[in-house]
Each structure stands twice: as C-alpha cells, then as structure tokens.
C-alpha cells in the first residue's frame, strides 16, 4: 500500500521534492514551447488562410507532445542511470503495488488534455469551414455564428462572392474548368484573397485533391459532386497532387497551382479563353506508350491511361 515514489518524510524533504519537481516541469515546459515554435519550420509555406490555423494547431500539439515525450523518457532515463542493480545485488526492489492518488492524477490529466486538444481542434475545424461531401446541399450558413472575429479576417466570410471552379480527376490527369469563361486548363490558376469554391469530380476511381502548401485535402468520389472551399493568400506556384491511391501511374498525377493577383488571374482567364483546345502532355500516357514499345516487358499489365485531356491552356 505504501506508495511514495520518491523517498522523503520530513516536511523539509517534502518541500525540496516539490521544489525540484516544479523546476523540472518549468524547464520541460520551456523546452517544449521552444520545440513547438520550431515546428513551424517543418512545414511548407502558408499559402492559404486555412494553413495558418492548422499550423498553429500543429505547433500546439507538438508543444504538448514534446512535454509528454520528454517527461516520460526523462523519467525512464533517470531510472536507467540511477536505479541500476549492483552486480551481485540479488535482492528485490520495494514491494509497491500501486498508489491510488497517483493513478487518479494520471488518469485525470490525460482526460483534461484530451478535451483541450479536441476542443481546440474543433474550433479550428469550424473556422476552416471546409466542406465534406454531405454538406453539398446546405451551402455555407452554419459556420457563421461560431466564427470569432479574427476568423472573419483570415477566412473570407460568406457574403463575399466566390470563385467557382470544376476539378476533374481521371486516370491520370487533372483538368480544371472555369465554367463562367468556359476555359479548361491542366494548370490550376487561383486569385489571392478570394474564397474559392471547387466542385470535385472523378471520372473513374477515387482520387484525392491535395495541395500541401494549403494543408488541404479531400478525396474525390466518382459519381459524387463534392464541394470544397478555401482561400489562397500567398502568390506563388505550388503543387497539387493526387492523394488517394488511384492505380499504376498514381505518382504522376501532379499539377501546378498558380496563385496570382486577381488582376493577373483575370488576364490569364481572358487569354486562355481565346486559345483553341489542344491535347495536353500527359506523363502517364507518355510512359504507357513508351512501355508498349519496349520489346521486353518488365512490368505487369496495367489499366490504360485515359486520353490526354484536351484543354484551352497547358504548359
């Protein structure tokens, strides 16, 4: 029943024990916060409003995780160094079966942490206001009430007009269609600081729409029309990849995402609209064709890539 983990019976010793523990906790906390700050550098540039929120959440999780990891491994390391049995010491350690107080503490703290993490994650999720496939029907209105003031700054609020773009995934190419101008492209052009609304479609199997610089991802399900919203905030060229395994040439299903000022964006659209559609180069199709020519076939039979998309704009 006796459960003192660290020895010490006199009040003085007790006091010292607490002092040491508190010091250690503070040092750990400082180190963890440092690691949490550092964690921003492990991530790609923040090119969408959503990415800022997610990075803050990630950094928070890293801080907490570092604290727990260092706490546990630190204690273990201390034991391993200082609690070794002497070579010929065959005796047993103290017979301690448990300690109710300690067990309650280390059940309660994780419970609190879980609610904290879940609560924070929930908040971020609400602010992002990304949509899953089931939310197609009732467009944006639920999220509004819950958004604290600053979210409205970083993430365009709903009153604003959105830019509607269709995204079509197929084995193995991306096609983007701008319905208003009836422009098709294999490069995704987006204006900055404007809410983008995509309609994600697939012609064959599951694909995934993923732009690491935006921290955003959504699987595309054939036969469904999935709405997806976000707000790009930083000009530059990023990569869009297929994030849901889609067969042989999965890795080649990459497209460029160009985020530019609204002015340049409009110019690009206007210019693209004047081009006559031509077949875009397609890596999967090219590799497939090349393999058909090889005399010795090393690979196994594969699904044939779809025809290279015919679009107004491609590189």
């Amino acid at each position: 029943m006796s459960g003192e983990l660290t020895g010490g019976s006199t009040p003085q010793k007790q006091y010292r024990k607490w002092l040491i523990l508190t010091t250690i906790a503070i040092v750990l906390a400082v180190v963890s916060i440092g690691i949490g700050k550092l964690s921003y550098s492990w991530l790609p540039p923040q090119a969408a409003a959503e990415s800022i929120l997610i990075d803050d959440l990630f950094s928070f999780l890293v801080t907490l995780g570092a604290f727990i990891f260092l706490g546990v491994t630190g204690t273990l390391t201390y034991s391993v160094i200082f609690h070794r049995a002497a070579k010929y010491d065959m005796s047993d350690g103290p017979h301690i079966e448990g300690n109710v107080m300690l067990e309650v503490i280390w059940t309660a703290i994780p419970i609190l942490l879980v609610f904290w993490i879940a609560g924070y994650s929930y908040q971020v999720y609400q602010k992002m206001a990304i949509k899953g496939p089931m939310e197609v029907v009732h467009l944006h209105h639920i999220q509004m009430g819950m958004q604290p003031a600053y979210a409205a700054e970083s993430i365009a609020s709903m009153g604003e007009p959105t830019e509607d773009i269709e995204v079509i995934g197929k084995q193995w190419a991306w096609v983007f269609r701008y319905p208003e101008q009836n422009v098709t492209s294999t490069e995704l052009h987006l204006p900055t600081n404007k809410r983008i609304r995509l309609a994600l479609k697939s012609e064959d199997v599951l694909h995934g729409f993923y732009i690491p610089a935006f921290r955003l991802k959504q699987d595309i399900i054939p036969g469904e029309n999935i709405n997806f919203e976000f707000t790009p905030i930083r000009e530059g060229t990023y990569q869009l990849t297929d994030s849901q395994f889609s067969g042989t040439y999965f890795a080649t299903m990459i497209a460029d995402v160009v985020v530019e000022s609204p002015k340049n964006y409009q110019e690009w659209l206007a210019n693209a609209a004047t081009q006559t559609p031509t077949a875009a180069p397609n890596q999967a199709a090219a590799e497939y064709a090349e393999e058909q020519h090889e005399t010795i076939k090393l690979g196994w039979p594969t699904v044939k890539p779809a025809q290279p998309p015919v679009v107004n704009y491609h590189k």
Binding site: T6, V72, T75, A85, P94, W106, P110
Partner: peptide
C-alpha cells in the same frame, strides 16, 4: 496513458538489469 505511466512507475526505484 494509464499503462504507460504504470510501467514508468514500475521501473522507478527498482533494481534494474
């Protein structure tokens, strides 16, 4: 977590080999 902490407490103050 209960398990992890229990193992740490088992090791703590033992005679480790």
């Amino acid at each position: 977590g209960i398990k992890v902490f229990a193992w740490v407490a088992t090791i703590w103050g033992g005679k480790l080999r």
